[in-house]
Design a protein around this nucleic acid. Structure first.
Lengths: 200, 200, 200, 200
DNA sequence: GATGAATGAGTGTTCATTCAT
DNA sequence: TATGAATGAACACTCATTCAT
């Protein structure tokens, strides 16, 4: 992709994730990238198109991450030791490449700021922060149950119980302020406590 | 308070909670209340003052609710039966008068939309959605622990574990879309399941 | 006159003389007097009426000062010693009760700020800062000439020559900044030097 | 410079010099230039920037005029005849290119209208209407004195005496009303009378 | 690829003024 | 006497967008 276009996307991502889509002006973006406003319209049809491009990249990233993580799934089920060894690895992957990944984290902020205002954002917000993670975990728990690894008669509730602390800690530590290494550590510490407690 | 001023506050509350503070214009508010823009400036110094008034009312409401709920606390501890009887009542009070209360619910939406953009909102967001509830629950759990009602060696974690589903379900059911009776029912159903599971 | 009305006039005088008529708002005046804007309209028909009242008072003050000073004129002509004695007295009177008088000084500032913008002000500005003083002095010089006290074949030019330093020092010392005792002293020092030089 | 930008500056100059900076609206300027208000903000950061540009041009003009006039100074001192020949030429240059120059004259009006209200304008007003001319003339008189051309033991007072009629006639003839050829003639007639009288 | 110039619609806000009380 | 409430017109300024170059 063109360098200027990438710079615009990058600046827009940063600004949108700090102040929300409608509060950021084309001028704001241009003064970061150091280009004229009309230049933006060479690369994008309009302001919304910038957001759409960001969201599209986010979806691609997220889907490919899911694909990657799913491939680790069979090994997870092989033996109890494999489970104990792999679970933290998978969780770390999920955190490092998604919740705390600089790009994804910023998009998640955008989703949480703008979801009430923008239907398209709302749909992504619902999907990626609620539906999809719950669906995956529900699936995992029901497979585990069927395999006799855990006993779980309500996989939907199990998923919700497992995911709630993730969402809570995400909101509390990862998108409440600037994202720092410190915050990520706090998040991980907290979330692994919850996981440990969960499988106690 | 003056009728027009109240109507302005009411319209502003609705609009701010739907689109966020900066996306709502004075014109938007006026076209709801059916007054001229200059009239707004008779009642409020500026746009921000409208938000501040709303936030002030929210704080007053919240604080008085806490006071009211605290008074029920001693009876909660008297006998195990009292606990079992009272807990749902208190939870319902918390939900009906706070999380799902039309006024509070809208303010909570505002907090969640604008917290990244507005420092004052951010402070209230952190305080009322994280610090305060966790502080209260941590206190409750440590008292319960001391009284031998429950055994809990890490009240801070216990509070987080108890509150996480609240926050999750709040985000999922109560501030993700328009607030309907149906959504409130879904929320309650889910949250009482979590509570039951918690005290299992 | 009513106390509130006087306070309005006083506040308006101060503000108009600092920032000019059109730059001062009714609000500005009210916040000094500590009344509501609508109250102003009980005492004055509109904003302009406040200015007119001030200008009327100024004209009354000026005219009565001229009358008073004219009465000293005959004695001025009696003997050369009387002239030498009386001239500084008259000049001091002119300065203390007019150019440097707190009320008149403020009005003169208003005239000099607003004369280009407001025809009525322009007329007073021309009259009281050019026509009238030159007319009086021209008259004085021609009488003095006829009486043989001084020899002066062009009283109009003599008046202009005599008055020019007044106007210059007025602008430089008395209406260029806040009016202080120090500034008045500087003005007097300078102007008496010019007078002495004139009659050398 | 861009044509539209120049037209804005020109219209602003005319309007500011007639009504003062704060009384002129961007709309006023636009309706003269026949552009939309937003266009003004393409060329200038804000209203004040228009004034600043005008003032900057005035300072450049004034400084280069002083430089040009200073170069004529040595010849002025060579012989008494040179003095008699050159003085009117220099005075005419001063009047035609400064006091009565259409651009400068308008700026001087702005200075005299807005100096009490605007600190930056006040500084230019003091400098260009009092400090600088007096400084130059004081310098000239002291050099002339040292060269034996005139005898003058108080050059500061001599400068004030020489300059006072300029300032007076400037106010009376050149910035009191619209600037016409007639007014300029009146001004010159008067000022040359004063100069002749001065060197009598 | 990029920009200089322009714009129409909209933003928050201030203003002098009115009028019923 | 004074004010609470309201307003229409104006204000400086910002916005996303267009289009010729």
């Amino acid at each position: 992709m063109n360098k200027t276009k990438e710079e615009i996307l990058d600046a827009a991502l940063n600004l949108f994730s700090q102040k929300g889509f409608s509060t950021v002006s084309i001028r704001d973006i241009c003064s970061v990238v150091n280009i004229k406003e009309s230049t933006v319209y060479y690369h994008f049809q309009n302001k919304e198109a910038i957001l759409n491009e960001i969201l599209k990249q986010f979806e691609n990233h997220s889907e490919s991450l899911i694909a990657k993580m799913s491939s680790a799934f069979p090994s997870l089920m092989s033996t109890p030791q494999a489970f104990d060894n792999l679970l933290p690895k998978i969780m770390n992957q999920y955190i490092d490449n998604y919740l705390a990944d600089p790009f994804c984290n910023k998009v998640i902020r955008i989703l949480s700021i703008d979801h009430l205002n923008n239907p398209k954002v709302h749909q992504l917000y619902s999907y990626w922060l609620f539906e999809k993670p719950l669906e995956i975990q529900q699936f995992v728990f029901s497979v585990f149950n069927n395999a006799g690894i855990i006993s779980c008669d309500d996989p939907a509730f199990a998923a919700e119980k497992f995911y709630a602390p993730f969402f809570f800690c995400l909101s509390r530590y990862l998108i409440s302020d600037e994202l720092t290494e410190e915050k990520i550590e706090k998040f991980k510490e907290s979330i692994f406590k919850h996981i440990k407690e969960y499988f106690r």
